[in-house]
């Protein structure tokens, strides 16, 4: 493994982890509602912008992070309650359009509450790079990878070991049966939106010291996360993580070995290729089921 390759790999994994978090948010909401939430990227933006703003107000970084994630979770809750819930029973397309409207509104509000400038969050543990196997690793990359790993472990515990997590899975599999065992689909929706929003905010905060943040970062990060979710198989948690990592690595390799001019195009090429050739993605659920 050449040092150059290692370098691209580290960069790819770091970006990929961020995409993975965004993709997980897409999948969780999709599972609860069959809705592709195009406001997912705005949660990323709110996480980053809100934490930057809080730190500027003199709030210590750890508290700023917690508050920004909580703010995003509340926003997710509000989106469900005031935009999605009132349209209950409407076709999924209508709900998707509502989320697009919400994303435009949130971007507009962000320019009013904050501004249109680009902001950087201070790295969590300084900027002195570390040498790992010939690659230069920023401490913030380790934060991104470590926190993402922790989040993924926490989510797999939640969905694999807790009754509430299983109730979410059950609802995504069979909404009627879920209602008949006494699961409140409305609570499942609220929980899914706030959980997804919190995940998006975590991604936005982690990446803010590396790629900076601004009122419109959600557009590109949202689309990348969506591409990652589709690549992995929409609705699959493991797929979201895998899709994010593959996309991140593909981007950084192509930027390194070909040209960075094509970096952003990779996601769209992958998106189109998956939709045309393998709509289930890498780990998507096969529809075959014993009746």
């Amino acid at each position: 493994m050449t040092a150059q390759f290692a370098q691209y790999l580290v960069t790819g994994l770091t970006v990929g982890a961020v995409y993975a978090l965004v993709a997980l948010g897409f999948s969780i909401i999709y599972n609860a509602s069959q809705v592709i939430n195009f406001a997912q990227g705005e949660f990323v933006m709110v996480g980053g912008m809100c934490s930057v703003w809080l730190v500027d107000q003199g709030v210590p970084l750890p508290a700023a992070v917690v508050l920004a994630v909580a703010a995003a979770a509340l926003l997710g809750l509000a989106l469900e309650k005031f935009a999605v819930e009132p349209a209950r029973g409407a076709p999924v397309v209508t709900l998707v359009i509502i989320t697009i409207g919400a994303s435009i509104l949130l971007r507009g509000l962000a320019t009013l509450v904050w501004d249109k400038k680009i902001h950087a969050l201070k790295p969590f543990s300084g900027e002195a790079p570390l040498q790992v196997g010939g690659a230069v690793v920023l401490p913030q990359s380790l934060w991104v990878l470590g926190v993402t790993l922790a989040v993924v472990l926490l989510l797999s515990w939640f969905f694999g070991r807790t009754l509430l997590g299983k109730a979410l899975l059950a609802t995504s599999h069979n909404r009627l049966a879920a209602q008949l065992v006494g699961i409140s689909v409305r609570n499942v929706m609220l929980l899914s939106f706030s959980l997804s929003a919190a995940l998006g905010a975590v991604a936005g905060i982690l990446v803010a010291p590396i790629t900076f943040t601004s009122w419109d970062v959600g557009v590109m990060l949202g689309l990348k996360g969506f591409a990652a979710a589709i690549l992995g198989g929409l609705g699959s948690g493991a797929g979201a993580v895998l899709g994010g990592m593959v996309l991140g690595i593909a981007e950084s390799m192509s930027a390194g070995y070909v040209s960075s001019a094509y970096k952003d195009a990779i996601a769209f090429v992958i998106l189109l290729a998956v939709l045309v050739f393998a709509p289930d993605g890498l780990l998507g659920r096969r529809v075959a089921e014993r009746v």
Partner: peptide, 29 residues
């Protein structure tokens, strides 16, 4: 369901990807 009105729906509607025991535990949700 809390009041004890419980249904076994037409077509069974089990939670296919979940384990048998998880299906049962969700029954006691």
């Amino acid at each position: 369901v809390r009041l004890g009105i419980v249904q076994v729906p037409e077509g069974r509607q089990v939670f296919g990807p979940l384990s048998v025991e998880d299906n049962l535990r969700l029954g006691a949700y």
